[in-house]
Amino acid sequence: MTDAFMGPPWQMDWRLDALARLDALPEHVQKKVAEARAELVTARDPYFRGIDADAGLPETMYVEPVRSTDPKGPRILYFDNHRGWLVYAFIPRDEDPQITVVEVFWQ
């Protein structure tokens, strides 16, 4: 029996409204979002479960559940020292697992 688990790099998809917000951001912020995206798609576990699971992220980024009562639900990745965030969900299918970004924000 083979291991059906597919690992990084993960596929990433964007909701159209999130993609439109990304395109509206200044170019230097889009680069910060690209850095955050790179961290997500290469993470072994995009949900960063466990104690200090996000310790490998740069100091300017960290991940937490959107709602603590929904540990398998969407996550929020803060970047640029809390100036921005990505809300995303990870769908861990055996075939074609992917990350879906539902919101991007920067202030």
Rank of each mutant, 00 (worst) to 15 (best):
V104E: 00
A53K: 13
V102A: 02
A53V: 14
L77E: 00
R49P: 05
D70P: 07
E39I: 05
I91F: 14
G84D: 04
D94V: 09
L16C: 06
A55V: 15
V102I: 10
R37Y: 03
D96H: 06
N81P: 04
V63D: 00
V87W: 07
Y88Q: 00
F5V: 14
A24P: 09
A38L: 06
A24T: 08
R67M: 13
P8W: 08
D54K: 15
A20N: 14
Y78W: 12
L77T: 02
Y47S: 01
V66F: 07
A20Y: 01
P9N: 00
D94R: 04
D17W: 12
L57F: 11
A53N: 04
G56Y: 08
A4C: 14
R21N: 09
M12P: 00
W85Q: 10
Q11T: 05
R44Q: 15
D80F: 08
V41W: 08
Y88F: 06
I99V: 07
D13N: 04
P97W: 06
W14G: 05
A24R: 06
M6W: 12
P97D: 09
H28Q: 03
P71A: 12
E59Q: 09
P97G: 09
A20V: 15
G56T: 06
A55K: 15
A38Y: 08
A36C: 14
V41Q: 03
Q11E: 12
L22V: 10
